[in-house]
Amino acid sequence: KNAAKIVNEALNQGITLFVSDNKLKYKTNRDSIPSELLEEWKQHKQELIDFLTQLES
């Protein structure tokens, strides 16, 4: 999976991924984040940080 797909899947579940101080963060109104999503974010962390940083610049 690529970073764009992961970010879109998160958005579809009401979760916004973003970068703050070079760290991957998220915002959501959900009570909890599915563990498989958290695991996927960890596996692709640097790719996600790079992707989101490019989007914001």
Rank of each mutant, 00 (worst) to 15 (best):
R30F: 05
P34S: 06
L48A: 00
V7T: 03
E36Y: 14
N29E: 13
L17G: 01
L37S: 04
I49G: 01
E36Q: 13
L37K: 03
V19A: 05
S35I: 14
Q54H: 10
G14P: 00
Q43S: 10
T16L: 14
E40C: 15
K25L: 14
N8S: 14
L11E: 06
T16C: 15
K45L: 15
L17M: 04
L55G: 10
N12Y: 09
E9Q: 08
T28Q: 03
L24A: 00
D50N: 10
E40N: 07
Q54K: 14
S57M: 11
E39H: 07
L37C: 05
A4F: 10
H44V: 05
E36C: 06
P34N: 05
N22V: 03
S57N: 13
T53Y: 06
S57F: 06
S35G: 11
Y26R: 01
I33F: 07
L24Q: 00
P34T: 05
N22C: 14
Q54E: 11
I6P: 00
L55H: 11
L17W: 02
N12C: 14
F51I: 03
K23M: 13
D31P: 14
P34R: 04
A10V: 01
T16Q: 11
F18K: 03
A10C: 04
L11G: 05
I15T: 01
L37M: 14
K45C: 14
L17H: 01
V19W: 04
I15F: 08
L24I: 07
S35E: 13
T16A: 06
S35T: 10
Q46Y: 08
Y26A: 06
V7P: 01
N12E: 15
L11H: 09
N29K: 10
E56V: 13
S35D: 13
N22K: 08
E39Q: 09
T28N: 04
T16P: 02
S57Y: 04
A3H: 02
E40Y: 09
V19I: 08
Q54F: 09
E47W: 04
T53V: 12
E40R: 08
L24G: 00
S20P: 01
W41G: 01
S20C: 15
L38S: 04
K45R: 13
K27H: 11
V19T: 05
V7S: 02
G14H: 05
E47N: 05
K23W: 04
E36K: 09
G14I: 02
V19R: 02
T53H: 07
E9R: 10
H44E: 02
I33T: 03
L52V: 02
K25C: 15
Q46A: 11
N2T: 15
K42N: 14
K45Y: 15
A3V: 13
I33V: 11
K1A: 10
